[in-house]
């Protein structure tokens, strides 16, 4: 019984959790969302460029995209974040001031873009080749066909994978704390961690964890729902129809056209 009570106090101390709540809401949640959304937006833009480069007809451009992707997918996130965050600190200071916050976002964007680029590329490449051919047959140039028809179809297909990527960015955003954030810039993890250290109790960190789950779990389910919807299609259930109805549909539209069956030779 004592042990159970000890565990409860360590992880689920109600008072400690309540105490940290305002900071988690006001500072942590806000910053986690700002960092994650910025990283996703920049990562998506870079990822799209990367995907287009990845299917380029020039082997050189394809190669560059490949190297970039291999590097940022292959490195542990924390290595990239520290290298970018500390290595570019001077440049960043001139542009954005002393805070490492923008660099954290930038590093997360670089990592995200490598994954998002691969997601986009696979989506675009999964679009049936006939789509590009149909576009070309209609007189579209390759860039226009890609922009109007192929890329939008590819993106739609990978929306679930993109949401998964957003979830993973939200979790990775906690690593930005390694760069040393100002008090007002702390994200969920850092707020929870600081409070845990100050109170000598893990409950604030558990509370931070609950915040992550509140964001990520519903998103996961949204993904599954969206995924299912796309899999089954937007088709509405309709009563079965005889193909013969269709035959009459055409003949009523063109009833002055001689039917092949009855026509004799070329007109």
């Amino acid at each position: 019984m004592d042990n159970l009570e000890l565990l409860r106090q360590t992880f689920l101390d109600g008072q400690a959790m309540l105490d940290v709540l305002p900071q988690l809401l006001g500072t942590g949640l806000k910053n986690t969302l700002i960092i994650s959304i910025w990283a996703t937006v920049i990562g998506t833009i870079l990822g799209m460029i990367l995907a287009i480069a990845g299917i380029s007809r020039s082997w050189f451009i394809r190669g560059l995209a490949r190297i970039y992707t291999d590097i940022f997918r292959g490195l542990p996130a924390i290595v990239t974040i520290l290298l970018v965050g500390q290595g570019l600190a001077r440049v960043s200071r001139d542009l954005f001031g002393a805070s490492p916050y923008p660099l954290g976002i930038f590093a997360l964007s670089l990592i995200a873009s490598a994954y998002i680029g691969e997601i986009f590329r696979s989506g675009i490449q999964s679009v049936d080749k006939g789509q590009l051919e149909a576009c070309k047959a209609l007189g579209m140039s390759y860039p226009r066909a890609m922009a109007l028809v192929v890329v939008p179809q590819g993106i739609r297909r990978v929306l679930p994978a993109l949401v998964n990527q957003f979830i993973s960015i939200i979790k990775d955003s906690s690593l930005v704390y390694f760069l040393g954030l100002l008090t007002a810039e702390r994200e969920l993890f850092r707020v929870g961690q600081d409070a845990a250290v100050n109170t000598g109790n893990l409950s604030p960190l558990v509370m931070a964890g609950i915040f992550y789950l509140i964001i990520t779990v519903p998103l996961t389910h949204v993904v599954n729902h969206v995924d299912n919807k796309y899999r089954t299609g937007r088709r509405r259930p309709t009563a079965p129809r005889s193909g013969l109805d269709e035959v009459s549909e055409l003949s009523s539209a063109r009833d002055t056209t001689p039917a092949i069956r009855t026509s004799t030779g070329a007109q």
């Binding site: 193909g243 035959v247 056209t257």
Partner: peptide, 18 residues
């Protein structure tokens, strides 16, 4: 195409030819 739908398309094509 399913067999019963073939003629509709062929008629259309014959119309174009005509």
């Amino acid at each position: 195409l399913d067999p019963e739908l073939v003629n509709g398309v062929l008629e259309l094509m014959a119309g174009l030819a005509g």
